[in-house]
Amino acid sequence: MTWLILVSLLLLPVLLPSTSTENTTTNQSVEITEDFHDVTLKRDKNPSVVKYREKCTIPCELAAKLMKEERHSLCSDLQHSIVSSTRSTRKMIRDLIDEQQKSLELLSNQLLELVSKVSTLGSEVQRSNTETLSTKPVQSHGRDCSDIKETLYATVSKIPSGIYIIHPENTEYSFEVFCEMDYMDGGWTVVQRRTDGLTDFKRTWSDYMNGFGHLPGEHWLGLRKIFNIVNQKHTHFQLHIALTSQDDTTSYASYDKFWIEDETNFFRIHLGRYAGSAGDAFRGYEQEENQETAPFSTSDIDNDGCNPFCTFDGKAVESCSTHQNGTGWWFNQCGRANLNGSPLDQDQSTLPHMHWETWTKNGLPVQIKSVTMKIRRMDTPQNN
């Protein structure tokens, strides 16, 4: 179509002189005719101009017009494409947001359901444990581990060590203890154990009074429970301390007629005759460091006799518990024994810092790796 238009325009100057309608032509036609006539008259003088007029002037104008129209069409098409692409992108983003929102709602519902199930399961476990503790048959019951051994010995050839429930006489409640039944004829109630350093013995008065730790592992039974056991009528208890050094050497210290006073007297300790291979660190070497009859002390309840301070290893000390990293013990101006000692917070050593300074090797106190304090009846209780 474009070339047909061009040919028609080229033929117009030829047709126009022979017609009588010359005056009715458009300005563009007259202009083209005059240009073409001038070109005819000057053809011989300047052929290059004629060739340019014939081949360039009209086709270039039309080409520019066509290019403009084509450019407009391309711009229009591009604009439509951009609009369409934008709409598609927006729709895709909305769909993704909706899909993510649905996924989040689903995950939220699943999380709520899981939390509900965990809560229900926890309640069921707690109820089951309560029912089990209230209905399960006691493995063996007695006033202490010695009493349990005597009760079971007639029917069981080998009594296992483990956790038992005891109810000392004249007490209002039962509690669990760890009984050693295979150590030195058995019947031992464990009141303290240090083995791996996983239990923190840096504790306050309340913790030492009520007990803490894990019975099969490291633990402190509690001053109240110890008091209830050793103050039963017509009984005497032996305190046995089994020590193990860092090089796995063993030693022990034993005291007969061990007992402690009640809470109003801060559980003062009383010891009978000493026997053993580790030395009598409770009484020490000098009278002023004797811990016999000393009340129990912690960082918040200070009964150590340092008024206003005492000297320990050449240092002025106001509180033996604070000086030994907040642990509790029967301190008397600190003394030579503290089996509840623990490393200082800034100390990077793995040693537990337990003290039994009368156990020596080459003139120096032995470094203690583990210790167990246990008690056992010395005689059979009698009826009132």
Rank of each mutant, 00 (worst) to 15 (best):
V230P: 02
K315L: 13
I97L: 13
L41C: 03
C306M: 07
T311C: 04
M373P: 02
S84L: 12
M1P: 03
R224D: 04
S103T: 09
K51G: 00
V83K: 14
G217N: 08
F36I: 07
F237A: 05
T25D: 05
T199Y: 07
T372E: 06
K315I: 10
L96A: 05
S299N: 02
N46V: 11
I375G: 01
V7A: 12
R143Y: 15
F296M: 00
T311M: 04
N109L: 11
Q126L: 01
R87I: 06
D38K: 09
P47G: 13
Y52P: 02
H355S: 04
I163Y: 08
T372Q: 11
R43E: 07
V14M: 04
I301L: 11
M184E: 15
W330T: 08
N332C: 00
V14T: 12
T358H: 11
D144E: 06
D38W: 10
T57A: 03
T130V: 06
Q333R: 12
Q367F: 15
K374I: 02
V317Y: 10
Y285R: 08
S297H: 11
Q232P: 03
K233T: 11
H72C: 04
G162R: 00
L114V: 05
F266W: 12
L351I: 02
Y183T: 15
Q126T: 13
A278Q: 06
E292C: 04
A294G: 09
S81C: 15
N362Q: 13
C145S: 02
R377G: 06
N384W: 07
N290Q: 10
H355N: 06
T155Q: 03
G211L: 04
V366R: 08
L152V: 14
L215A: 01
D38Y: 08
L223K: 01
W188L: 03
F36A: 09
I5L: 13
D379R: 09
E176H: 14
H270I: 00
W205A: 07
A275Q: 15
V115S: 09
G122F: 11
A64S: 11
